[in-house]
Amino acid sequence: MSEQAGPFRALVARDLRLSLRVGGGALTGVLFFLAVITTVPFGVGPDLNLLARIGPAIMWIAALLATLIGLERLFQSDRDDGALDLLRLTDAPLSSFIIAKVVAHWLGASLPLVLATPVLSLLLALEPLAIAALTATLLVGTPALSFLGAVGAALAVTLRRGALLMAVIILPFSIPVLIFGVAATRAAVTEPDPFWPPFALLGAVSLIYAVVGTVGAAAAIRINDG
């Protein structure tokens, strides 16, 4: 058991450490999140009622963009310095490598985003129940975005300058996450709508995308050597 967990944990620990070092940019995602949330009121106006209504959607879109943009170099940095080849020289399947990379990235980039959500929500005048629901949906939904982004990141290894194309391809697939995430948050504060059905669907989408993303990213990485 520990034999199997060894390489996995080693890789997660290494990537987390790298993201915290100079040039790692662990907190850039949170800064981006803050920047988007700060910008929106200048576009829609300072009406707190309006902001409270569209707040969950703004936060979700900001999280979506932060995740997808932040993931672009998930595999590319390892490819650029040759580590990607070496990391594949194990008896573990490629999918466990993908999962380790995504887990490390989620812990280093998405989790801080989730933790920052309660504070940043105050800027958009969300009420406490909505803040709790939003934080919970981001916690459950961002893994789906990370795994989806991993496919894009694996494509970016092949495409080199494919960041924009990657977003074009991945964004449509992230629509269900956005729909259920925002719906669950809204349902928590809107009386007749139940919170749990969209929340459960969000969890289901996360699970499906974890599988699809892992398999897809592994296949894309392997093809690079075809």
């Binding site: 494509l155 092949t158 391809i169 697939f173 259920f180 669907l201 897809g216 093809i223």
Partner: peptide, 26 residues
């Protein structure tokens, strides 16, 4: 290479499009 990469995305799309359809209806 283009064929293989595109095939992966096409299949991911084939899995996701029903999910998207469902979520959009919802």
């Amino acid at each position: 290479k283009a064929g293989k990469i595109t095939a992966i995305i096409t299949l991911i799309g084939a899995i996701n499009l029903p999910i998207i359809k469902f979520s959009v209806d919802w």
